[in-house]
């Protein structure tokens, strides 16, 4: 069973985000990057499935010049192979990314392709469906539970709908899945192992042409305007606490606590 995981990096939200001079993108000079949370769930699921059903896990990331640590972390967590795809200045839009991944996957055995259902930096959620379309595979999004059938020809997946209803779907393999969560917290990758792997790992690479466009252009990016109905409380922690207490008291909430 060949499991493929598609991963990317997103800005670390611990950093304070700023908009660049053009007003169409984040100021990337100061940003640091982390692996997209949903992609980590996808990897954890792939590793769990591999351990149950056997086979191997291959992690793919577009080569934006800074994915070595991401790939080493995948290996440290237990992935069997890592591959850099194409060569990009920076993370491209979903259509381009999907085309590159699909091109790479054409020459790569794959039974189950997992990726995060979306990422915080574009909320597009399109890479999975687009890869599926390009490879003519079935696709399920927002998957919360994955089990591979005993014959390895199908997988059973769950989708959770509003109101606490869960649907169980059967999908023929090969297929692509957009993963919403993993059964366990993504496992920890010890830093010593990651560092060791950064020096010793073998990274496969696949050349792909980087054409195709998203058909979308970001015209402007801005920090949401402070609404008139919201009061931003600034100052020292004590001053903030005092103000919150005053507001609560004003509205008669939690009188006992305010005193």
């Amino acid at each position: 069973m060949e499991f493929i995981v598609l991963l990317k990096q997103v800005p670390d939200l611990a950093e304070e985000l700023e908009i660049d001079a053009d007003g169409t993108d984040l100021a990337r000079d100061w940003l640091s990057y982390v692996t997209s949370e949903w992609d980590e769930y996808a990897l954890e699921e792939a590793l769990q499935l591999r351990d149950q059903a056997g086979g191997s896990v291959t992690c793919l990331a577009l080569d934006t010049g800074s994915v070595d640590e991401l790939l080493a972390t995948c290996l440290a967590r237990g992935a069997d192979r890592v591959v850099k795809v194409g060569s990009f200045e920076r993370q491209p839009a979903s259509h381009v990314a999907a085309a590159a991944f699909a091109a790479a996957l054409r020459d790569m055995p794959h039974h189950l392709v997992l990726t995060g259902v979306q990422a915080i930096d574009d909320l597009d959620g399109q890479v999975g469906p687009l890869v599926a379309t390009l490879l003519d595979l079935p696709h399920v999004s927002v998957v919360t539970h994955i089990a591979v059938g005993p014959d390895g020809r199908t997988a059973t997946v769950h989708q959770e709908y509003a109101g606490g209803v869960v649907a169980e779907l059967e999908v023929d393999l090969p297929a692509t899945l957009g993963v919403q969560t993993s059964r366990e917290t993504p496992r920890y990758a010890p830093v010593s192992r990651v560092r060791q792997l950064m020096k010793t790992m073998e990274v496969g690479s696949v050349e792909v042409s980087a054409d195709g466009g998203a058909g979308l252009v970001i015209e402007a990016m801005s920090v949401p305007e402070v609404s008139a109905t919201a009061e931003m409380i600034a100052g020292s922690p004590d001053a903030i606490a005092e103000r919150i207490a005053a507001i609560l008291a004003e509205r008669g909430i939690g009188k006992a606590a305010v005193r």
Partner: peptide, 13 residues
């Protein structure tokens, strides 16, 4: 804990 916790490169933990 993890059934496959002992992962390292190439290893089927």
């Amino acid at each position: 804990g993890h059934a496959g916790g002992n992962g390292h490169a190439g290893g089927n933990g």
